[in-house]
Amino acid sequence: MFVQQLINGLALGAVYALIALGYTMVYGILHLINFAHGEVYMLGAYLGIIVMGLFTLVGLPAYSLPLTLFLTILISMAFCALYGAAIERFAYRPLRAAAKLAPLISAVGVSIILQNVVMLTQGTEYKNLPPLLPSEGFDLLGANVSPVQAFILSSSIVLMLILHFFVAKTRLGKAMRATSQDRVMAGLLGININQVISITFMIGSSLAAAAGVMVTLYYGVVHFFMGYLAGIKAFTAAVLGGIGSIPGAMLGGFMLGLIENFGASYISSVYKDAFAFLILIITLILRPSGLLGQKAMDKV
């Protein structure tokens, strides 16, 4: 059972980690908690179900399932990247010089708008996706690793590696790190701040979209309110790891997934959600800056 719970927890944690990255990157650069981020994840899930429906109409899954999944994730990520950039352009950029609370309120507003737009256009019913991948997977030390879990774990690790190399090795990544350290100074040195911020939002949103598509495959249900709890959980993961730190968000996400699963299986499934927040409170009391939040130089 331990191995099975470990795998369940890691798969769930990978999803939290992908969403948490968006929170942490935006916070690293703007010191803004983007409360609309959970909604972008919800949009990604809806886009995933729509795109997959379209592909099924033309018969692509029967031709090649991996290609279908790959294209679905890519399209959903691209769309949500645009959403992310647009949200930043219209809801946050005009308020950048304003007091800190103003963009936060704007973020909550965007979140409410997105939820209601989806509710009005897609309805309040749960949308179901029939299972695309078989449920029996391969055996690992007595635990069943389903194809969806393997897919979630592998693709999220690939995405995180790409992100890591992007931030660590590319020119744009360097510009992002510089902007997070000192926005004014980076601007004086010729970095296009607006562009860097836009790109940060695009990356964060596309990762959330990937998480949305994965969850759709995993659970097979989407609804307009799903972004709320997932957003709060991912935000918890980001704070747990140390908000502003990219490795922290990854660590926090995986930890949260594991805590939830082990708590629910060994202690009580009724209080599953409570464990995550309990650990958060304990962490914040003992280490207010989060697990990896100390290294201020690394935050992006």
């Binding site: 059972m1 099975q4 719970q5 369940n8 927890g9 769930l12 969850v215 659970y219 249900v221 799903m226 939830e260 699963n261 082990f262 708590g263 629910a264 299986s265 060994y266 009580s268 499934s269 009724v270 599953k272 959600d273």
Partner: peptide, 20 residues
């Protein structure tokens, strides 16, 4: 014997505990 949370998308933890 146990409860689950309504509207929670993930019940794998409780199901694994049952399997045990």
């Amino acid at each position: 014997y146990g409860g689950i949370v309504q509207r929670d998308p993930d019940y794998k933890a409780v199901l694994t505990a049952i399997k045990e």
